[in-house]
Structures are given as C-alpha cells and as structure tokens.
Design a binder for these strands. Structure first.
Length: 188
DNA sequence: ATGAAGATGAAT
DNA sequence: TTCATCTTCATC
C-alpha cells in the first residue's frame, strides 16, 4: 500500500483498512479493528497542539505513530492527511495469521484470540515499540496489503473514554472474534 | 520541580 | 473493580 492511501479523511482510511493485512517483520494478519483520532477530539494526543511526543501526527501521512500507554503498553497508529492536519487511526486488533508462534512467544500465551485483540496486545505480539514511531509504512519492517474484497463493517463509539463522544469512532470487522471487544448489535 | 491523568491489560 | 507502572504535559 502506498503512503498516499493515508492522505484522506481518517474515517475513510479506517473503514478501508478493515480487512487489510498488516505485517511487521512478516508477523501479523488482517486488521479487524481501528479507532479514529482527529485534532478536534479532546481524546486525541494532538488536541492541544504539537508537543515533542506527538509531532509525527502533524507530519505527512503514511507514517507510524507509536506511544506508550499507562507506562506499560505500546500502541500503534497510522498518521493520516497532510502536514499540519494531525489525524490518525489507532490499530486496535488484528486476526493472527502469520507468525503465530512468534506472537505466542512474545505474548507468553498461545490462545489465538488473546494474541492481538487490543492495541497493547497487538504491539506486544508484533514486537512494535516506541523505536518504530515515525517510520514510513510502505517500507520494512512494515508491510501493508490492501484487502481484496469489501467486508461488512461495524461501527461504534469510542472505547475507554469517560467523556461522551457520540460519533462513530471505532470501526471493526463485523462478527470477527478477534476484536478487542464486541460491537453492540443494533436493536431491531 | 512536581503531580495528575492516561487512546490498557490482567488479575481479582 | 483494582492495580501495575511510567511518560507526558501543564502548572507552580
């Protein structure tokens, strides 16, 4: 996938990335869940303007932004849109298909469902750390492959935030059992 | 200098 | 629901 893929509205990028394959050093699988972050969102790291940590978000699209969460976990984002527009998509979960053994080793367990179902778990399984922040996504160690067919997409509100945000921010592969958490099923 | 909060995960 | 664990950023 080309870097220009990311030079678009992050909601479009997120929905088109569902089903796309993400590999890091050959380990990974199809992405099944992402979350959108835009400058205007109080939950976004870019909300209060550029800082040493988030500068890559203000840079060109098609680059990684990796940050430390709760002092323990790493979380991977793909930077979207042009220079100065600090939007990104957080990769929240993928279905493990390549390098299962490597992922199990890094995660300390072998249950496929628990390998990469969550942003922190995903980075641990793939071996992604802060050292990977700012890297272009169209070169090794990253390898992103566009999906071949259009899957059914589920949408939902933001996860893990106490503040109310009432716009669809989370995108997922409908029915996947590798989501960090299920999407609420729409009532009839 | 200091401290509060945090885009999480695992255990209880 | 609690807590581990520590960086970032804002404020003093």
């Amino acid at each position: 996938m080309k870097r220009s893929f990311f030079d678009r509205d992050p909601h479009v990028v997120a929905s088109e990335l569902i089903g796309a394959e993400l590999f890091y050093d050959g380990v990974g699988g199809p992405i099944v869940e992402l979350e959108v972050y835009v400058r205007e969102d109080p939950a976004s790291h870019s909300f209060r303007g550029p800082t040493p940590r988030n500068t890559v978000m203000f840079g060109p699209p098609g680059y990684s932004y990796v940050y430390r969460s709760y002092g323990i976990h790493w979380c991977l984002n793909f930077v979207c849109e042009g220079v100065g527009i600090a939007s990104a998509v957080l990769v929240r979960a993928l279905e493990p298909t390549m390098g299962l053994e490597k992922m199990a080793e890094r995660r300390g367990l072998s249950e496929p469902r628990l390998l990469a179902s969550g942003p922190g778990r995903l980075c641990q399984a793939l071996g992604i750390t802060g050292a990977d922040s700012g890297l272009p996504l169209d070169r090794v160690p990253f390898d992103l492959r566009a999906r071949k067919t259009t899957p059914e997409i589920a949408v939902g509100p933001r996860i893990g935030l106490t503040k109310a945000v009432d716009v669809p921010w989370r995108y997922g592969l409908a029915g996947s059992r590798f989501l960090s958490r299920p999407f609420a099923t729409r009532r009839p």
